[in-house]
Simulated assay, not measured.
Amino acid sequence: MFKQFTLSLMAGAGVYASAASAHFQMLYTPELLRDSGGQITLKLPFTHPSESGHVMAVDPPQAFYMVKKGKTTDLLNSVKPAKWTSASNTGDAYEADVRLRGLGDYVFIYEMAPYYEASEDIYIQQITKSIVNVGSLPTDWNQDFGLKAEIVPLTKPYAIYEGGTFTGVVRSEGEPVPFAEIEVEYVNYEPDMATNGFAQEAKIEPPADAFITMTLFADANGTFTFGIPKAGQWGFAALGVGTDTEYQGKELSQDAVIWVQAHPVN
């Protein structure tokens, strides 16, 4: 009843939640909080990280750039084809090498090409953010970039304790999206940067399938909070919150994705 009500509210505002679920555009590097800069590699598979699921082949991204202290650097030419291996398959993916120079936040924004999900007869496009910090100096992490679909963090996404919380606001072109539906997945199979694939063994055993992809809703102001029970990286995908709702004559779910990292308490 509540879900039907909230979806009706979003439809009235021109926002449609996608029927497709558990798809996550990864923007992965092992450590989002670094002591120093230098070159990092970002792995960019479109997959199901909580269950080491199917890797989906997607056309090259429409945009990829980095923002640091208000300056935008186009990274699209750094993207190169790669393979990614899951428990399900080895599929086409992408990766990029980027050099970090100086202290502060490096906000990476990756706009994947729309992906046709045949089982749903819809397209999915995820606009993904991941923020890498160097030297614990905060600069850009909580900026609203006015994206078509965006999760703006209210918690530093790289400085969360295991057992802490992450709070964000779902926005579309700077405006809050009320009652947005948000899927949450844990990167339960450690990505291997050398072999381009997930580890064979899971880090945790979910108590039921309902924990593989968890769902929550933002409030009337587009704000949500999620308690993070385990160290590692977590993905949040706000479904169908973007301004674009159609692609090549079919429904488009334009999703906002952000990745955060929780650290163990020693």
Results as ranks from 00 to 15, higher is better:
T155V: 01
A194T: 15
E190V: 06
R171H: 13
E175I: 10
E190T: 12
N188S: 02
F198C: 01
Y186S: 05
T165M: 12
I160L: 11
V187M: 10
E190R: 14
E181R: 15
M193V: 02
R171I: 08
E181F: 07
A194H: 11
K156W: 02
E162F: 03
Y186R: 01
R171P: 00
D192V: 00
T165D: 12
T155M: 02
N196G: 01
N196K: 09
F166M: 07
S172A: 13
E175G: 01
F198L: 03
G197I: 03
L154N: 09
I182A: 03
E185N: 10
A159Y: 10
E175L: 11
Y186Q: 01
F166S: 09
P191V: 01
G164R: 12
F198V: 03
A194N: 13
Y189C: 00
K156M: 10
Y189R: 03
V169Y: 09
P191Y: 11
V184I: 15
E162K: 06
D192I: 02
Y161D: 15
V177I: 07
P157N: 14
T167G: 11
E183C: 01
Y161T: 14
I182R: 00
A194V: 13
N196H: 14
L154S: 10
R171E: 10
G197F: 04
E175P: 00
M193R: 02
V170F: 09
E190F: 06
V184K: 10
V169S: 15
T165P: 03
G168E: 05
E175Y: 12
V187Q: 08
E190S: 05
Y158S: 03
G163M: 06
P178E: 09
F179C: 05
P191A: 09
N196C: 00
S172W: 09
L154E: 14
A159L: 11
G197C: 01
G197R: 04
V187K: 02
G197Y: 06
Y158Q: 02
K156L: 03
I160T: 05
N188M: 01
F198I: 00
Y161W: 11
P157D: 06
G164V: 04
G164A: 07
Y161Q: 15
A180F: 04
E185K: 07
A180M: 05
T155W: 03
E162V: 00
A180I: 05
T155E: 03
K156S: 08
G174C: 11
E173L: 12
L154V: 02
Y189F: 15
G174V: 10
G174E: 13
P176D: 11
N196P: 00
F198T: 02
E190D: 09
Y161C: 06
E190Q: 11
V169G: 03
T167Y: 13
F166K: 06
K156P: 01
V169K: 15
E183Y: 08
G168T: 05
T155K: 08
Y189E: 04
G174L: 12
P178C: 10
